[in-house]
């Protein structure tokens, strides 16, 4: 069965020659100002990779150029929306985000280290979990839906103020158990197609799956504005889509499994720049 599948994958690659080819040598500078590291040496714990690449590298010239200027990047519309939200008081405590954090510029560097350990709660937190903790604990406001519009807008804002800074997610200490769970999931084959994350994004990045140019599945660019659905897309929703495409029952957005996977996949991108909101196909 496995050899059959491999033949199938090879056939797909052969038949999908007629596709938009990316300029894999291109460099990304946003607004002629923010230099983005889109390729660099892989961290030691991504032991099967020598170089790590941002998904931007694998996109066509037209898609790449949409991310070079904030005015052309439709994802920045949602950052603007989130700046309004940032300054809006909500909930029982009379606070806005700005009440505690001041200007959103003060959040520079925050996105780069998430997911990370929270001592008080004794759990690994994604940035979405931390935002919701702020909302319920500091603001007395309702939680936002995981990967819902409000949350993704705010995640895009937080990412945008960390653009150009290197992803630097901790993998040891208290997060180690979750990180190892994430790695196990990454290398586990799921679904009727019997595919792991690694089968596509480690073994076959740079190849085509049908007409699509496979990336390394790095998540430094999330949330991502996809041309396909013309809105921001969250990391864990992308995970769910991938697992669904293997024809498996998927884990839920916000589940422990996907939090672990987000931690692990984020750590594989240590050294790439934060670049959200990115633009992808």
């Amino acid at each position: 069965m496995k050899s059959l599948l491999k033949t199938g994958v090879a056939a797909v690659a052969i038949f999908a020659a007629n596709v938009a080819q990316a300029d894999e040598e291109a460099n990304l500078v946003i607004n002629e100002e923010i230099e983005i590291t889109v390729r660099t040496d892989a961290p030691a714990h991504a032991e099967n990779l020598s170089t790590i690449y941002s998904g931007w590298v694998f996109r066509s010239d037209e898609t790449q150029s949409l991310q070079m200027d904030d005015f052309e990047n439709p994802g920045m519309i949602f950052v603007d929306d989130a700046i309004d939200t940032w300054n809006t008081v909500e909930g029982s405590e009379g606070n806005s985000c700005a009440s505690c954090h001041g200007e959103p510029e003060s959040m520079a560097g925050v996105r780069a280290v998430y997911p990370k350990w929270n001592d008080a709660a004794e759990e690994v937190r994604t940035i979405a979990m931390q935002v919701n903790d702020c909302r319920t604990e500091q603001m007395g406001a309702e939680e936002w839906k995981y990967d819902g519009g409000d949350m993704l807008n705010m995640e895009a804002l937080l990412a945008s103020f960390s653009r150009g800074l290197p992803v630097n997610v901790a993998i040891d200490g208290p997060v180690e158990a979750m990180w190892e769970l994430g790695r196990d999931i990454y290398y586990t084959r799921y679904g009727q197609l019997d595919l792991s994350c690694a089968n596509c994004h480690e073994d076959n990045y740079g190849n085509n799956i049908r007409a699509d140019h496979l990336s390394q599945g790095q998540i430094n660019g999330f949330p991502t504005y996809r041309l396909k659905n013309a809105k921001l897309n969250g990391v864990q929703s992308r995970f769910r889509g991938c697992v669904r495409d293997t024809r498996a029952e998927t884990f839920s957005v916000g589940s422990e499994e996907f939090i672990a996977l987000e931690l692990y996949v984020a750590s594989r991108g240590n050294g790439l720049s934060v670049e959200g909101p990115s633009v992808r196909n």
Partner: peptide
């Protein structure tokens, strides 16, 4: 001149 408006 460049213009962009958010609209579905």
């Amino acid at each position: 001149i460049k213009t962009l408006i958010s609209h579905t």
